[in-house]
Design a protein around this nucleic acid. Structure first.
Length: 512
RNA sequence: GGUCCGUUCGUCUAGGGGUUAGGACGCAUCCCUUUCACGGAUGAAACACGGGUUCGAUUCCCGUACGGACUACCA
């Protein structure tokens, strides 16, 4: 019988959520929604040394910003609470002890120095992979080599210990990965991983199996970096006797650096000039900061669409997908196997696409806010006019203002290259006539009016309009390129345009 | 080093025994246009290599090369 799909995203709160983690969360989310299942979030905070305050909040904010908030989480618990591993601390020992009882795990008392000595010894003996395993454990201090009496004494005396899994010497461990197919590993290459640390906390390996079992997880969708430890996890399910409800595994291809090679890492953001985190991050204690996609001006729906296509595609030629369309189209079968380079140019393209689908009215608020930051007050009407003129030319919404401030600020200098080429007697004649005619003009000064008056002026002085258009633009905006000039005139108003033209005629000498 | 995973244009990818190997980003050219963009059109650009299997392999198998992950009392 098939259970309701339950998937989880399980980050550890050690800092800002990496963009690769965001994609993992997204695929989990999409799969859950596609199958009518549940998407849970579990905080894996079993490493007390690496805990970073604020990280959990950051994870929550990031997922909410992207619209992929979990159905169950520490702040919105379902029936399988707790959703923080630290809050389940007491339970794990019972499970570890159960394994000890069954002969699948054992106590180990080796100190860090002794472990190090063991590795050195093995390296010296030219053992290729020094590890704590079925062979070396016979020479270490553990409940397999010590007498029962001594083990009891050590435990009673409070001596620090760990619990290690007892990996069988010869066994083929098989796992059917949903993305990669059958993966087979021989148990002799696995080591006796620590299950319970000496601080009483479980390691990831134990906690993740116990929690997935307790939380009734049906599919584990996680990064490829976990593939090597998946056989251990399969073995643990078997040792616990939970094979029947063991989740299916899907190991996602990694996100790679855009240039060169290697996994995209947290430091790459600053180096490569684009964010690797969803939101800005600041650690007040360490002073560590990181740039976020949101603050750089990426729309959440654009980032989501971009991320979804990093390693997955719908199999047809569509590129633009809303969240709902992604859910509809998503399937694990269509996730690729190979690592994916992170191409920020494509992310920008997606952002451009999504900006264009926004209404002028919606975008106007951004322009108004940006202008206000520059100490300028903009009416809704004027802001919308600016949006209409600029939204198809920008990558980020903020550029509608930052790249187009000149609309409201009169130029004090003029592009020299354009001036030398286009500024001439004809242009000045047209502009002088035009300035006079718009000053005399009463009534609406919209784009069409501005244009017909300009055409009249050109005709009046017998000059072809096309010949002087660049000069007109230069006179009013100071630049040789930009949005539709007549619409700019409409925004500026007749009076301002005339003033600017007169200033330009005074400032710019006619060459030759 | 060992174990595991991978390899189609620069990038993201579709495809899959017989195709002009398709799309998108980026790039180039042209068109549109008052400029720059947008938009439209066009173009350059890929099956890592070597063996098999086969009438025929980019596709299936095996090697090789290259890349990646993992190799902690971190997740």
């Amino acid at each position: 019988m098939s259970r309701e799909v339950r998937v989880r995203f399980a980050p550890s709160p050690t800092g800002p959520l990496h963009i690769g983690g965001v994609r993992t969360a997204l695929y989990n989310y999409l799969f859950a929604k596609k199958t009518g299942g549940k998407f849970l979030l579990r905080i894996e905070d079993t490493d007390q040394n690496r805990f970073v305050p604020g990280a959990e909040e950051y994870i929550k904010d990031s997922l909410e910003w992207l619209g992929i908030a979990p159905d169950e989480s520490p702040w919105n618990p379902g029936s399988v609470a707790p959703y923080r591993q630290s809050e389940r601390k007491a339970d794990y020992m019972q499970y570890a002890l159960d394994l000890v009882e069954k002969g699948h795990a054992y106590y180990a008392f080796d100190t860090a120095e002794e472990l190090e000595a063991m590795r050195e010894r093995l390296t010296a003996a030219r053992v290729v992979t020094p590890q704590y395993n079925s062979i070396t454990r016979t020479q270490m201090k553990n409940s397999l080599t010590l007498s029962e009496e001594e083990v009891k004494e050590r435990l009673a005396s409070g001596e620090p210990y760990v619990i290690r899994v007892k990996i069988p010497r010869k066994e083929e461990v098989r796992m059917n990965d949903l993305i990669r197919g059958w993966v087979m590993v021989h148990s002799s290459t696995l080591d006796d991983k620590v299950l319970m640390k000496s601080d009483g906390m479980p390691t990831y390996h134990l906690a993740n199996i116990v929690d997935d079992h307790l939380m009734d997880i049906t599919h584990v969708i996680r990064g490829e970096e976990w593939l090597p430890s998946a056989p251990l996890h399969v073995l643990l399910y078997k040792f616990f006797g939970w094979e029947d409800t063991m989740p299916e595994f899907a190991h996602l291809p990694l996100l790679l650096k855009p240039d060169g090679n290697g996994k995209l890492s947290k430091r790459d953001g600053d180096k490569l000039g684009f964010p690797v985190f969803p939101l800005n991050w600041e650690n007040k204690e360490s002073g560590e900061t990181a740039a976020g996609f949101r603050e750089q001006g990426y729309l959440p729906e654009a980032l989501l669409n971009f991320l979804a296509f990093l390693g997955w595609n719908p199999g047809d030629e569509r590129e633009i997908f809303s969240k709902e369309e992604l859910i509809e189209a998503f399937s694990i079968e269509r996730i690729g196997k190979a690592g994916t380079k992170f191409d920020i140019a494509k992310a920008k393209w997606y952002n451009e696409q999504y900006i264009r689908t926004k209404s002028n009215q919606e975008l106007a608020s951004q322009v108004i806010a940006d202008a206000a930051n520059d100490g300028m007050e903009l009416s809704q009407e004027k802001a919308e006019a600016i949006v209409a003129l600029t939204k198809e030319r920008v990558t980020f919404a903020s550029e509608m203002w930052s790249e187009n401030k000149f609309l409201l600020i009169a130029p004090t200098s003029f592009d020299e290259q354009v001036a030398s080429k286009k500024w001439n007697e004809d242009a000045v004649k047209v502009l002088e006539h035009y300035a006079g005619s718009i000053e005399a003009h009463s009534g609406d000064f919209d784009g069409a009016t501005a244009k017909s008056l300009l055409e009249n002026s050109a005709a009046a002085v017998e000059v072809k309009l096309g010949k002087v258009m660049q000069a007109v633009r230069l006179a009013v905006t100071g630049a040789g390129a930009g949005p539709d000039l007549m619409e700019i005139f409409a925004i500026l108003g007749a009076k301002e345009v005339a003033t600017r033209i007169k200033f330009a005629i005074e400032s710019l000498p006619v060459a030759g």
